[in-house]
Every structure is written in structure tokens, then in C-alpha cells.
Write a protein that binds this DNA or RNA. Structure first.
Lengths: 340, 340
DNA sequence: CTGAAAGCGCTTACAG
DNA sequence: CTGAAAGCGCTTACAG
């Protein structure tokens, strides 16, 4: 295995000079630089990141904690992060962590506590004090994309505004009996993504003067297509006046709900308007009205912030205003219309 | 930052003894071990993996190359790999690599060439000679899950048999005009997953004495729901005798095809039987007949093999017979029936 | 069972 | 602009 000593010998310089030539740090005569580089290329020298990390304290590696990889939103975020990190010369170490439990503690107390990552990106994870403290102790920048808990920087969509916007779209079309298919846990954790969307729904309804009780139906279900399907089946099969519109907390849920409506012989949008959230890749095919967000881009932004915090960024770009929410956009397609 | 020297001092032993006590390698008096462990716990000592790697040559880190994270199959595989690696104390470094291009070369020649991973798992990637050589030179075990190219171990489904089984199911129901929605590139790369499924289809058709030309339709499309939708629209909208059954190369394609059939007013399974491949989480909801495979389990198996190759595995378990294909199973639901 | 010493492969002050 | 030396934090023969 070629080491830097071999390169130095071949180029007729010291290891120090070889190191400087290869890393581009410090002064090296141009002619020397070229000789060193030729030598390195010749013997196929590749620096050992471990050895370099040991002395610089930088690993060029970022840990990503993400609750799912197999939901559209999270997959997109992960791809965005991966691409951005790779092009900055960073590795991505993946921690797929959802439930609280011993596995989770192990990641924080063992895996992330080691000096193997320079920073951590937490996607939609609600960090508790112990977890935040564990990262703080190691002085690792923590960037959060959604989720709750004290991070050094936080990027998030204004999910309350999203919930409000989606609901207002339905109200604006003339609907009054509007149901909300919320993500599980929405009511217990009002600060969470799903909780905020629910709050936004309630905001819009009460602003429209529609009493929350009786008239409105909220049902919580798993944030997935089958979750939306099952949830909608309950919501729509319930005796009593059926809602004329449904705000589903994600596109996957919305598509499940559309499927459920078909099953029950309820026409969309004739008998039921459906709106989702996400801008899922399937949304267009299902002609779904939705509030789009851009998870791939969000991942890229999170990496930008991380690099900024690590002092990597030579560009004069200001930090994206931490207060400003991430971009979202209402896209109206064929699953919403005025009530009959 | 607490180092092993601090632990040693606190416990009143040498660094060597502290190291042995903490790692469990080499002899240490039980009483000493406990003292060292108490000291480590007290000051929150955590070993630096970089320093350890430098001397042992082991990083406890595995690189995973995967073309998508956001397709069901790949997401499941990745989750399976992640879980298995984590529980073995390994990190997972993710390389999301699909297209050939400069980015891809960079991963092989730079990222993977460094000594940061002990082994590589390549999921459904067709490695060329240069890429294999690049890993071989670094002496890194390479385990492939699907895909082509010389790996040290390869796990794969018998996709030809899968294609054959799916087609035979349709033939057995009495269908003769059977179309195949193949994955793009299937005909150019007969050795690939999609190519093999197509071969299996052809095998079954010709075994049934149905001439391949004229009677059978094969269309290639992107392996995704929209791909299946668009492809099926073409296949079913074509003038001439319509197929009575469709073998889609993946469940996502099959679901897209079902959607297309609905759009065209073609009843499934009355006018058209549809079978997919995968056992996608949505399959049940769409009552899809499919040939299931178990990607999460496949990921776990790949990790098993990697650990075996790294000599990690103390268990006497024999290597899973490398020749034996991975498990698949025909699951009949409501999208296939006898032709009218 | 334990310790002193060497060394893994690099980078970084420090002199010159 | 370049080199000699120290040191990052660990582990592993080697003696004892």
C-alpha cells in the first residue's frame, strides 16, 4: 500500500513537502508540486483519511439520522444530501433511526459519540435533551431538517402555514364539511410536522367560522399509502353527513384516500375533493392537488448549512436566513373542485 | 477530549492494559478490567475509531453502492443492510450511484479507493472491469446483490425463473395473448435483472408454443409507477388484438399499468390480468398478484456474507450456498384470473 | 497478567 | 520554499 513516504522518496522531497504539494496547503514550488503529483499518480497513491483525520481532527464525513429511507419524502431528502455531500468531497454515514429504543441510544452514545463524523444532519427527528447534550459534548454541529429539539441550525417548512393553505384552498372552493386525515401523533405532539399541519387545518377552519367540533372530522393514521387508505375508509364509511373534501397530511395518504373513495364508489372530485402535501412523484399521475415541497433541495440546503458551520464554504453566500421557512407551493390539479 | 491515556492514568494502569481491558483482546485480570471500565465510564471515554483503524487496518465501516434509494426495492435493501451493519457495530457509508459518468468514476477511484471502508456491498450495479480492478487492488471484499461483474460473492434472485414463473401463472390461467412490460435496457443487457426477467418470459412463451413474434408484445419502460402507466397506455392503446394479460417487470410498473387500464376503461382482471414482481408494500392494497422477493432480508444476507468475508463471524454457520438463488414466491391475489 | 516502546500514515508548527 | 521532528490516539508484539 503506497504511503506518502513512497511518494516523497520517488519525487525526491520530504514527506512534509509531499503532503503540502498534495493537499494544496502551504507553499510549494510549482515545479516541485508537479513532480510530487506525478509521483503520486505513478504509484497510485491515495491519502489515508484515517491518518489525516487523526491529526487534523476533521473526518470529512457527515452523519445523517433519518427515520425512514423508504418513504418518498425521506428518500428524496437523502438523495439530495448524498449528492451535495459527495460533490463537496464528504462521505455520508447513514443512521436509519426511527423508534426510540436501545438501538437509538446506541447510535447517539456510541456511533455518533465517536470522532468519526464532523457534523450531524437530523431529518425529521425529535431529539430529546440527552441526545442533544450527547452531540454538544462532542462539539459536533447539528443541523436539523424538520423535527424538534435544539439544533445549531434548523431548516423547516412552515407546516402550520401548509395546513392552513391546503384547508383554505378547499374552503375557497366552497367546501365546509372538510375532514383531515392527520399523521399519527399529530394531536399529542403539536410541534411536530404532522402536529403543525393539523394546527394549520384547525386555524383555517376556525378562521372560516366553522366550529371545530361536530362539523369537522380529524382522524389520525399512518403517514403512508395504506395508512391513508384505511383511514379514509373509516372517515368516509362513517354514518352521518359525509365530508365533501379531505385534507390528507401527505400525498401518499391522499393517494390511499383516493383509492378508498374509488372502493366505496365515491367520485373524486365530484363527491369528494382531496388535497395532499408533498409533491410526490406519483402526484401528477393521480392528478392530485397538493402543496408541494422540495425535499431534494431541502437536503442540499441542509448540506450547505453544514459546510458553512464547518467553515468549508469559501463563497460569500450568506447563511440562508435560518428563520425563513423552506419553499412550498400550492399545485392545483384534478382531485379538487367545488362541491356539487 | 478524553483519550486512552486519561483512562489509564485514572485506573492506574498503562495505556496498553487499558486498551486490552476495553477491547477485550488479550489477558487482563478481571479486577483490573473492572477498574479500567469504571474509569472509562467516569470520564466518558470513547475510543477514536480513526486511531484504532490506523493501527489495525480495520475501519468497521462498509461502503454501500446503490443506484436508487427512493425505489421500494432499493429502500428495503438499504434498510436491511443498515440494520444488520449497525447491530454488528459497523458503520454504513452510502454511495448513491446510478448513471455511469464522472461522478461514478470519482466514487471508485477516490472515495472507495481510500482506506475508509473494509468492504463494499454493491446493490444491482453492473460493475465494469476497471471498477472491479480498482477494488481488487485495495483488497476490499466486494459483495454483490444482483447486478453483474466480478464480485467476491454474489447473491441474487433467479430472475429468469421469476419471469418464467410469472408468465406460466398467466399461461396456466388460460391466457395466450400475454404482453410483457419490461424494464428499460432489458433487451440490450440480457444478463441484467430486467434482461433476465424478459428472458424468462420468452422461455415460458416459447415453451408454451406461442410464437414470440406477432403474438407477444414486449415494451420497455422505466421501472417505476409512472413508467408502468405510460408503457401500459401504449401497450393497451395499440390497435389490433389487445393482450388479455400483462406481466410487468415490477410491482410499481404493474400498479401503473392497472391505473392505465382504469383510465382506458379496461377491467382488471376481467379484461386484463396483471402480475408484477417484488412484493411491494402497496401490492396488497392493489390486490396485486405478484412474485414476491424479500429485499430487506436480502440486505441482511449480504451483510452476513460481508462479515463472513471479513472474518467477523464466530458462528459456525456455513456461507449461504453462493449458488443458491434468493427466495421468491408467487402470491396470487385479485388482479389475475382466467380470460373471459 | 502488565508495561515500555514502536509504529500505523499522516500534518503541522518550527527553523532555516 | 523545504525538511526534521513531534505528535494525533490508538494497538500490538515483545519482555518480563
Amino acid at each position: 500500500m503506497a504511503a506518502i513516504g513512497d511518494v516523497a522518496r520517488l519525487a525526491g522531497v520530504s514527506k512534509a513537502t509531499a503532503s503540502r504539494a498534495l493537499s494544496g496547503r502551504g507553499y510549494v514550488a510549482e515545479e516541485t508540486r508537479q513532480r510530487v503529483e506525478a509521483a503520486a499518480a505513478k504509484i497510485g497513491y491515495i491519502v489515508s483519511p484515517d491518518a489525516a483525520s487523526l491529526v487534523t481532527g476533521r473526518t470529512k464525513n457527515v452523519g445523517v439520522i433519518i427515520p425512514f429511507v423508504n418513504r418518498w419524502f425521506f428518500g428524496e431528502v437523502l438523495e439530495g444530501i448524498e449528492r451535495a455531500l459527495l460533490s463537496a468531497g464528504y462521505d455520508l454515514t447513514l443512521y436509519n433511526l426511527s423508534e426510540r429504543g436501545p438501538g437509538r441510544a446506541r447510535v447517539f452514545d456510541f456511533f455518533l459519540a465517536r470522532k468519526r463524523v464532523d457534523a450531524v444532519i437530523a431529518v425529521s427527528v425529535d431529539l430529546d435533551e440527552h441526545e442533544v447534550a450527547s452531540l454538544e459534548k462532542r462539539e459536533k454541529p447539528l443541523v436539523a431538517l424538520g423535527g424538534t429539539g435544539g439544533a445549531d441550525a434548523r431548516l423547516s417548512v412552515d407546516d402550520r402555514a401548509v395546513g392552513q393553505l391546503a384547508t383554505e384552498h378547499l374552503l375557497h372552493l366552497g367546501h365546509a364539511r372538510i375532514a383531515h386525515l392527520a399523521g399519527s401523533g399529530a394531536s399529542e405532539t403539536p410541534a411536530s410536522v404532522q402536529g403543525q399541519r393539523r394546527e394549520g387545518f384547525l386555524d383555517a377552519m376556525s378562521a372560516a367560522g366553522i366550529p371545530a367540533e361536530g362539523q369537522t372530522h380529524i382522524l389520525e393514521a399512518e403517514v403512508s399509502l395504506p395508512g391513508g387508505y384505511t383511514g379514509a375508509l373509516q372517515l368516509l364509511g362513517h354514518p352521518g353527513p359525509r365530508p365533501t373534501a379531505l385534507f390528507a397530511a401527505s400525498d401518499e395518504m391522499a393517494i390511499g384516500a383516493i383509492r378508498a373513495a374509488e372502493k366505496l364508489g365515491i367520485d373524486v372530485p365530484g363527491d369528494l375533493s382531496v388535497i395532499g402535501v408533498d409533491g410526490h412523484e406519483y402526484a401528477e399521475m393521480f392528478e392530485l392537488t397538493t402543496v408541494e415541497q422540495y425535499p431534494g433541495e431541502q437536503g442540499r440546503l441542509a448540506v450547505d448549512v453544514v459546510l458553512r458551520l464547518l467553515g468549508e464554504d469559501a463563497t460569500a453566500d450568506p447563511l440562508p436566513d435560518s428563520g425563513a421557512p423552506l419553499t412550498t407551493r400550492l399545485v392545483v390539479r384534478a382531485t379538487t373542485s367545488a362541491p356539487r
